[in-house]
Design a protein around this nucleic acid. Sequence first.
DNA 1: TCGAAGATGATG
DNA 2: ATCATCTTCGAG
Length: 208
Amino acid sequence: MLSSPNSCQPTPLPRDFFDRHTLKVAKDLLGKYLLRETQAGVIHTRIVDVEAYVGPDDRASHASRGRTKRTDIMFGPSGFIYVYLIYGMYHCLNLVTEQIDYPAAILIRGIEVVENGNGPWKAPTRIDGPGRVCRFLDIDRNLNGVDATQGKLVWLEDRGENISPKQIQKLTRIGVAYAGDWAKKPWRYSLLAAKKSSEAPRRRPVKK
DNA sequence: TCGAAGATGATG
DNA sequence: ATCATCTTCGAG
């Protein structure tokens, strides 16, 4: 337990946290809190499902095709976010890990909503799927490259939750069947087991 | 409840 | 052409 009674000022996870082997970081992200600052307040969520994309040889990773304009951020320092558009309509949120020039990142695939800012929308308890996560948190490519260690816009917090390895389900990554042997890597980590979510309502953009 | 298929645009 | 996805729709 680390929250001192008077600490109103949250401490974002520092770069050191992300600057480690990606599989370790991925496991450690489970049970951590993902915070998103919007105009309507700060949304508090808890991470329950992630996927690791590790290094230049991981054929499931965007970085396996080399350093491009899009993947540049993955080759940079850890602790930044990588946001990309997928299937023309959805965004995916990733956290960059490991050292400079080693491309690796962790996809946030599922969250639980702990506190939902002051928004008028109804909060579902759990959101499954990276596209839904981004839609709910109002994250798109404008946030690509944001430093997630600064406690602004997007950041993470440790609230002293201890996740035992037994709570972590290792699965294969989704949607990467093209990646040959790399598709078989059990690099998706999911927290057991909670309840099945009811449909996550779509966040309506503010009408102008 | 489940599977199939369409939407939709950046990417290399 | 493909894609680190989600929704809708129809069948059962």
